[in-house]
């Protein structure tokens, strides 16, 4: 069966005819052409396809598109700031070499974004707990932790500056 799926994707309202059994990852990659959502495994194992559904990280490869009716869905493409400016996490992953090959990076940045929206200054243990579902084969995770900490510190400093200003 086919249905009309209405959702908000990276801040824009969309309506698409989708099959009931269409996976969210296929909807995002094929219909919306958001190819940052990566298929790294055969289902729910690696975290490369994580997207935010109403703010919570979800593996798009084991989520039905139909489950996102009325939801706000965010992918890496939607996490940049106004005018395409890199978000603090994106900039930190770039500058601190949190990304080597870059294949796990979309899922990593999505997970870390969810973490930093909830927890302003996570300690190392909280970062490890939040990113445990994201596999990376290049970095040994050392610089990923560094990138998240760097972004968190920068965001906290910005907020302090705003509050002071």
């Amino acid at each position: 069966m086919t249905r009309i799926l209405r959702l908000t994707l990276n801040g824009r309202a969309r309506a698409d005819a989708v099959a009931d059994n269409l996976l969210l990852i296929d909807y995002l990659r094929d219909a919306a052409r958001l190819t940052s959502v990566k298929q790294g495994c055969d289902g729910g194992e690696c975290g490369a396809c994580l997207v935010l559904v109403d703010g919570s990280p979800r593996p798009a490869c084991i989520t039905l598109a139909a489950q996102c009716e009325g939801a706000k869905v965010e992918t890496l493409e939607g996490l940049s700031g106004p005018g395409g400016a890199l978000s603090p996490l994106q900039r930190a992953f770039h500058e601190r070499l949190g990304a080597q090959c870059g294949f796990c990076t979309p899922g990593m940045v999505v997970s870390a974004t969810a973490l930093l929206r909830k927890t302003k200054r996570p300690d190392e243990g909280a970062i490890r707990a939040a990113l445990e579902g994201n596999l990376c084969r290049c970095t040994g995770y050392v610089k990923i932790i560094d990138a998240v900490q760097t972004a968190a510190a920068e965001m906290a400093a910005d907020q302090t500056a705003e509050a002071a200003g």
């Binding site: 940052s36 890496l76 493409e77 890199l86 770039h94 990304a99 870059g102 990076t105 979309p106």
Partner: peptide, 9 residues
């Protein structure tokens, strides 16, 4: 690196 962190890669 920019391509990798923005999804443009």
């Amino acid at each position: 690196g920019i391509e990798k962190v923005t999804g443009r890669a």
